[in-house]
Design a protein around this nucleic acid. Structure first.
Lengths: 222, 222
DNA sequence: GTCTATAAATCGATAGAC
DNA sequence: GTCTATCGATTTATAGAC
């Protein structure tokens, strides 16, 4: 009886290990596909993302990808989902900054840096047809813990803190102020991603000028 | 001799009239194509713009369109060219406003209105792959009288005027200030076009808050 | 698990009948 | 000037051999 029990446990453990290895290899293949997909979107745009190009890039047959992803749409969705996650990860460190004004400035800088370093991801989640992005953003769900919503909440919380400390001029809604700031920084990033020669002002200079101007406009004291 | 001369003139006049009518009908057909193309871009996005869909919409055979447009690219380019023209036309009336600050505010309002009323055109010229747009914008040419460049010049001139009147705080470049403003308003418009539920603040409120904040930040006096 | 082969659809653009 | 018919290429996705 104890022996049988032992054998059973051993087999069970082996089974788990085997499943683990398979899932790991499966995850590795999926990551290879996604990495290739990101390169293609970066170099040729989203509508050039085809199963065949991915297959060529990872040196597999087109059909093989369908064993790991249900469809092209599923790959696009996963790019968005992972995109929002790394976007949030790029912004989160600002939580360590105590001064809300300085936190605001650093949020802008990190936002810009993420957009310029990951233009393909940025375009996918913030500029393209929101068919895939809005689902990954959980735009329609009431849950507010999606990475996208957490990133926005970071900005709203900073303005709420500014208001609590009576630093804001006027009585504007923190959400409206956060969305204004978001739109302003998004404008800088998205123009740079779309156009090669405009704006001609370097992005970081443009962002600093934007942030300085907004902060001067928002705050009670100059 | 005079008769011959008369006949010649008559024939010549007839010929011109006939050519005129043909060119008019040709222009009408082209406009029908472009109108259908705009509807398709609006409803299904730019990469859903196909010759077959246009042909279905105007109830002609696909091949017929090739008698009026060289290719699909030629249609896309013409959409951009006409887009920049109507964009400039939407902004030009602000020249009548003497007060540069008020002109700035009205520029923002007209920019926003154009974007929301012509989202397909706005997306095409300012958000999509600039393959067609940059040519229509004459981004690379030194000529500065393209509609797109004229629109940008309108904004730069306003900031130059503000600087001349010593109304600006600091010594920022009019071009940098203009590009900052452009980016800010573009952020409001493009976010609204891309997302359905974000920003949740109504566009016109968001724009007024943005403009108020920027103006407060730009100007020497509160 | 990966391959080859292919179905089924859709695309841009052209040829030729009328 | 418009049509039908079609070429040739490309796509997603699947079926079946190995």
């Amino acid at each position: 009886m104890p022996t049988v029990h032992f054998v059973k446990r051993l087999r069970y453990t082996e089974g788990v290990a085997k499943v683990d290895r398979r899932e790991r290899e499966r995850a590795e293949f999926r990551e290879e596909v996604l990495a290739a997909a990101r390169r293609i979107v970066l170099e040729e745009g989203f509508n050039a993302l085809t199963m065949r190009k991915i297959a060529d890039a990872i040196e597999y047959a087109p059909g093989t990808i369908y064993l790991y992803f249900e469809s092209r749409d599923a790959i696009a969705f996963e790019l968005c989902r992972a995109g929002f996650e790394s976007f949030l990860a790029a912004l989160l460190p600002v939580k360590a900054i105590a001064n809300p004004v300085e936190r605001l400035r650093e949020l802008g800088r990190r936002y810009l840096r993420f957009g310029l370093e990951n233009p393909e991801t940025y375009r996918l989640i913030f500029m393209e047809d929101p068919k895939y992005a809005s689902e990954a953003f959980q735009e329609n769900a009431e849950a507010d813990d999606s990475p996208g919503k957490q990133a926005l909440a970071l900005l709203v919380a900073t303005f709420a803190e500014l208001r609590e400390r009576k630093l804001l001029d006027g009585d504007a809604d923190p959400i409206a102020l956060a969305e204004t700031t978001w739109a302003a920084v998004h404008g800088v990033v998205s123009l740079k991603i779309t156009f090669e020669h405009h704006p001609q002002t370097p992005s970081n200079e443009l962002l600093e000028l934007m942030t300085d101007t907004l902060v001067r406009g928002f705050l009670r004291t100059r």
